[in-house]
């Protein structure tokens, strides 16, 4: 945030990618030291791309995503040389805004489709876009809408290069959401884990939890979670894995086991209300079974 001697905001922005980007942001702030209020007035009289970008960033800083997108769109129209940056910012702001229901999936998708069709889009950009759209589709419980983005990303030829972690994640999601092949997804997901993952309680817990969330491979997930319980370094970690084991047991219809694991978790972490609530949830389910 840049302020003048009176403490009035003249510019503000979110994050920066490296030293050069930070310097560029500061230089931009120095190039126009009018207050945000003055810049709004100037924009109303005579709009230009630089002012639109400044006001867009100002809106994004206070999570006013709708206004940020409006100004970034104006900036893109007024200064085509900034189109790539503005398009990227429009998508990011729409993504964050969609989590607060400011934008619908269709609105985000129309902008994402423009980005996909843009000449010069790199494999990294398309993969990031696919990851974002897949995450959004799943959070909105319309996982099928992720399919075209997953396909577009995986259709990109990377030659003999090692798939990036993002691409590996997309391959797992493609197997789950497009191929509907749980076995393939499990194999790909295991391929993303470090070599010694079966000796690491945290990795075992993460993998078991992923299985639970996707309702696949629950028998093996249960065994691996119990392995994690044995390997856990302290009571806090052990309680977390026991909670995973309880959820998996419940998902497998073994509610008595779920209650037992939840009780152990609650005993190990008596200060955590979450485990008490989980115990109540599984106990109630077991009583009505």
């Amino acid at each position: 945030m840049a302020v003048n001697g009176k403490g009035e905001i003249t510019d503000r922005w979110l994050g920066f990618d490296g030293v050069e980007a930070w310097v560029a942001s500061v230089e931009k702030a120095r190039s126009d030291t009018r207050t945000i209020a003055a810049k709004k007035e100037a924009f109303a009289k005579e709009p230009n791309g630089a002012l639109a970008e400044c006001l867009a960033n100002d809106a994004a800083c206070v999570m006013d995503y709708k206004t940020a997108v409006k100004y970034f769109r104006t900036a893109r129209d007024l200064d085509p040389s900034r189109a790539a940056y503005c398009s990227d910012q429009i998508l990011s702001n729409m993504f964050y805004g969609s989590r607060d229901s400011v934008f619908t999936f269709d609105e985000v998708a129309s902008e994402a489709d423009l980005a996909l069709a843009a000449p010069g889009a790199t494999v990294d950009q398309i993969e990031s876009l696919a990851a974002m759209m897949s995450s959004l589709a799943q959070s909105m419980e319309i996982p099928e809408r992720a399919a075209p983005y997953l396909k577009a990303a995986l259709d990109q030829d990377i030659g003999d290069a090692e798939p990036s972690p993002t691409r590996q994640g997309l391959m797992v999601e493609h197997a789950l959401l497009v191929d509907h092949d749980a076995g393939k997804a499990v194999k790909l997901r295991k391929g993303m884990l470090p070599e010694d993952w079966q000796q690491d309680a945290g990795q075992l817990n993460s993998f078991a939890w992923w299985c639970f969330q996707n309702e696949i491979n629950l028998d093996e997930a249960q065994k691996l979670a119990m392995q994690g319980v044995d390997l856990a370094r302290d009571d806090e970690a052990r309680a977390s894995i026991l909670d995973t084991a309880a959820e998996i047991s419940a998902a497998r219809g073994q509610l008595a086991d779920a209650v037992g694991f939840a009780q152990r978790a609650a005993d190990l972490a008596p200060d955590k209300d979450y485990y008490k609530e989980q115990l109540q949830k599984f106990t109630a389910a077991a009583e009505t079974q």
Binding site: A2, V3, G5, G7, T33
Partner: peptide, 16 residues
């Protein structure tokens, strides 16, 4: 920083 900025017409950057 604000006092110095006011005296010399400078900008203050607050990096969070």
């Amino acid at each position: 920083a604000l006092t110095a900025a006011q005296a010399n017409n400078q900008l203050v950057i607050v990096d969070f």
